[in-house]
Amino acid sequence: MNPALAAYGMLGIAIVCEVIGSTLLQKSYGFTRLMPTIGVAVFYIIAFFCLSQALKTIPLGVAYAIWAGLGIVLTAAVSVVFLRQSLDLAAWIGITMIIGGVLVMNLFSSAAGH
């Protein structure tokens, strides 16, 4: 398998696990509910393990920008769809800018390493 593809796959898994962990963080109510609290720990451990594997191939700045950017976007989407929270126009504009930044970095920057 292509090492870059494997690294981006691990980064994708890391992002999804981080989003799940963050969602469970809210559901833990300040770590007062046992099962969501355990879920937070498990998903964050998986997320950081997968991120560490991705960093073997992807430069830290690029990986972290993708991790943070897509993590914010997906966490916001989960909060709207599953937690029934609302976002205002400024939030949607910011999310659009984050997506644009991740795309510019990956499509046009030589720092992305591909």
Rank of each mutant, 00 (worst) to 15 (best):
H114A: 15
A68F: 03
S86L: 13
P36F: 00
I20K: 04
A7L: 03
A4K: 14
A68T: 12
Y44H: 06
Y64H: 06
T57R: 15
M10V: 07
G101Q: 07
V42Y: 06
A91W: 12
Q85C: 04
L107D: 09
L74H: 03
I93G: 03
Q53D: 10
G94D: 02
L70K: 06
H114D: 12
S86P: 10
S79V: 04
I93K: 02
A41G: 10
D88E: 04
A47E: 11
T57D: 01
A6D: 10
C50P: 08
M35V: 15
G9Q: 09
M10H: 14
N2S: 13
V19E: 05
M35W: 08
G9E: 07
F49N: 12
G12L: 08
L83W: 10
G113T: 06
R84F: 12
I66F: 08
I99R: 09
T96R: 10
T23W: 02
I38E: 02
V42A: 11
I38P: 00
L24Q: 02
P36A: 08
Q26C: 11
I95L: 15
V102A: 00
C17T: 09
F48E: 11
I20M: 03
I15K: 00
A6W: 13
G30W: 05
M105F: 09
L83P: 11
A77G: 11
T57S: 09
I72V: 15
A76D: 09
V104L: 14
A111F: 11
H114S: 14
G30T: 04
I15C: 01
G30L: 00
S109G: 08
A54M: 01
L51H: 05
K27R: 15
W67D: 11
G113Q: 07
E18F: 07
Y44K: 00
W92E: 07
V81N: 12
A14F: 02
I15W: 03
V81I: 15
V42W: 07
L25K: 03
N106L: 09
A7D: 04
A76T: 08
V16R: 04
I66S: 01
A6M: 14
V73A: 09
L107Y: 14
S52H: 07
S110N: 15
I20Y: 06
I99Y: 10
L34W: 03
M10D: 13
A91L: 12
L51Y: 01
V19Y: 01
A65L: 10
S22V: 11
I13M: 07
L89V: 13
V42G: 08
F43E: 10
S28L: 03
L25I: 04
A112D: 05
M105V: 01
G30A: 02
M1A: 14
Y64F: 12
A7Q: 03
S79A: 15
I15Y: 02
G9P: 01
T32Q: 02
S110F: 12
A91V: 09
A90M: 14
G12E: 04
V102G: 04
V16H: 05
S109D: 05
A4V: 12
S79C: 08
L51G: 04
M1R: 13
T75W: 05
V16G: 06
F82R: 05
